[in-house]
Design a protein around this nucleic acid. Structure first.
Lengths: 91, 91
DNA sequence: AATTGGGTATGCAATATTTGCATGTAGAAA
DNA sequence: TTTCTACATGCAAATATTGCATACCCAATT
């Protein structure tokens, strides 16, 4: 499912126009992102936790040529599924 | 930030009561989960992709006793941040 | 509705990182 | 109050990561 299809579904279940459903959805994702930018984690009970993980610089390798490369430190958003969510998929 | 705080923020920016904001939010997460149950991935442009990852069975260990245990195969929800999202955090 | 630009999946090699096991505790959230 | 979540531990095996070309799919613009 892509974003457009998701919006259509939400538009139905939230009883909103597609435009409003999309606005609502974007507001939510932006709010989560803003919180993460503030170096925060966002915990959503029953769903999961978004957090920013810091990765150290390290030595990697170009698999095509085999040559070593320096990989810069970076940050990445991680999602840790809640317990309830794991159970849903393991039955 | 936890769910309650998120709901308060959303209530403000969406101009909804807290109860409605929460209902809206839950509807969205449930819709995403339902899509994932259908063995689908959910791609959200500019944010990321949720997908169900299958993990193979393997040998683990009880860290308390040190004894080996067989870990069953399982499924887990993965979130892959979109490119745009990575860039936000690496500047 | 069709085109186009852009993001994304794939495969590859070698290594770094993550995962997940059991379980009690602390802390937070419902 | 009662439920949920993070953390800590040792260790083996699964998986992510990196560059890059190609194919593909999607989003937005015309």
């Amino acid at each position: 499912m892509n974003k457009k299809q998701l919006i259509v579904k939400l538009s139905g279940s939230l009883n909103l126009s597609k435009a409003d459903a999309e606005r609502t959805f974007d507001t939510i994702t932006n709010t989560i992102l803003d919180a993460l930018k503030g170096d925060d984690s966002v915990k959503i009970a029953g769903f999961g936790t978004y957090k920013v993980a810091k990765r150290k610089a390290r030595v990697g390798r170009n698999p095509r040529t085999g040559e070593q490369i320096q990989i810069a430190a970076s940050q990445k958003v991680k999602f840790l599924p809640a317990k309830a969510l794991k159970e849903v998929f393991n039955r």
